[in-house]
Amino acid sequence: MYEDEVLATHRQEVRRGTVVLACLLTLAQPNYGYALLESLERAGFPVDANTLYPLLRRLEKQGLLSSEWNTDEARPRKFYATSPDGAALAELLYRDWVDIDRSLRTLKGTT
């Protein structure tokens, strides 16, 4: 069997390509960063905060997310939501993921 470190590295590589899609899909409903971390964790996409927050800023800069500060509570929170461009990209990436899944199942012989 593979060493834990080797397995962890390869798992990280596979997940790295899916975090953007997971964020875009999850943020179809607006949410703030920490709650997004928890939602992703519950869905099986554990992401480190040091990875997520720069990703959110990058996606926002690319126009794939919009954001708005909520100052109604004692602690202001920045809420993110998938923009229309982000939703369109999520749909394309999701279709790509389905195609990749289908191809891998074919290679494994489990179609």
Rank of each mutant, 00 (worst) to 15 (best):
His10Gly: 03
Ala22Met: 10
Glu5Gly: 11
Ala49Gln: 12
Ala43Pro: 00
Ser66Ile: 04
Glu91Asn: 05
Ala28Asn: 10
Ala81Ile: 08
Asp96Pro: 00
Leu65Val: 08
Leu104Lys: 08
Asn70Phe: 14
Pro76Thr: 14
Ala49Val: 13
Ala88Met: 09
Ala81Asp: 02
Thr110Leu: 12
Asn31Glu: 04
Ala87Asp: 05
Gly33Ile: 01
Gln12Ser: 13
Arg57Cys: 10
Tyr34Val: 12
Ala43Leu: 06
Gly109Trp: 05
Arg16Asp: 07
Pro54Thr: 09
Ala22Gln: 04
Thr106Asn: 06
Glu91His: 04
Tyr34Thr: 13
Ile100Trp: 10
Tyr2Glu: 15
Asn50Ser: 13
Leu37Arg: 06
Thr18Lys: 15
Glu68Gln: 04
Leu25Ala: 02
Lys78Tyr: 13
Pro84Trp: 07
Ala8Gly: 00
Ser66Leu: 01
Thr51Pro: 00
Asn70His: 14
Val6Ala: 11
Val47Met: 08
Gly86Phe: 02
Arg42Lys: 08
Pro54Tyr: 08
Asn70Ala: 12
Ala88Trp: 07
Glu38Ser: 02
Leu21Gly: 01
Lys78Asp: 07
Thr111Tyr: 05
Gln12His: 13
Trp97Tyr: 09
Thr51Leu: 12
Gly17Gln: 10
Leu25Lys: 02
Arg15His: 07
Val19His: 03
Tyr32Asn: 11
Glu5Leu: 09
Ala43Asp: 02
Ser103Cys: 06
Leu40Tyr: 02
Asp99Val: 13
Tyr80Ala: 05
Pro30Phe: 00
Thr26Asn: 05
Ser67Phe: 06
Arg11Lys: 12
Ala74Leu: 15
Ala49Tyr: 08
Thr110Gln: 11
Leu89Thr: 08
Ala74Pro: 06
Ala8Glu: 07
Ala43Tyr: 02
Ala74Arg: 14
Thr9Ile: 06
Glu3Leu: 15
Ala22Arg: 03
Glu91Trp: 03
Ala74Asp: 10
Gly33Lys: 01
Tyr94Pro: 03
Asp72Thr: 12
Pro30Gly: 05
Phe79Val: 08
Leu7Cys: 10
Thr110Arg: 09
Ser66Asn: 05
Ser83Phe: 04
His10Phe: 10
Leu107Ala: 15
Tyr94Val: 03
Asp48Gln: 14
Ala43Val: 01
Leu52Glu: 09
Arg105Cys: 09
Leu27Trp: 03
Leu27Ser: 02
Glu41Arg: 03
Ser83Tyr: 04
Leu92Lys: 15
Glu60Thr: 15
Leu40Glu: 00
Asn50Tyr: 11
Thr111Asp: 04
Asp4Phe: 14
Arg42Asp: 02
Asp72Leu: 15
Arg105Ala: 07
Tyr34Arg: 05
Glu3Met: 12
Val98His: 07
Pro76Lys: 15
Leu107Asn: 09
Glu73Val: 09
Thr71Arg: 09
Ile100Asp: 15
Thr111Phe: 04
Glu41Pro: 00
Leu93Lys: 06
Leu65Asn: 01
Leu92Cys: 07
Thr110Ile: 15
Pro54Ala: 10
Phe79Tyr: 15
Glu73Arg: 14
Lys61His: 09
Asp99Met: 12
Ser103Met: 09
Leu55His: 03
Arg16Gly: 01
Leu24Lys: 02
Leu36Gln: 00
Lys108Met: 14
Thr9Val: 05
Gly86Trp: 00
Ser83Ala: 10
Leu27Thr: 01
Pro46Ala: 13
Leu56Thr: 05
Leu25Val: 03
Arg11Met: 11
Ala35Glu: 04
Lys108Trp: 10
Gln29Trp: 02
Leu64Met: 10
Leu107Val: 08
Val14Ser: 07
Pro46Tyr: 13
Pro84Ser: 09
Thr82Met: 06
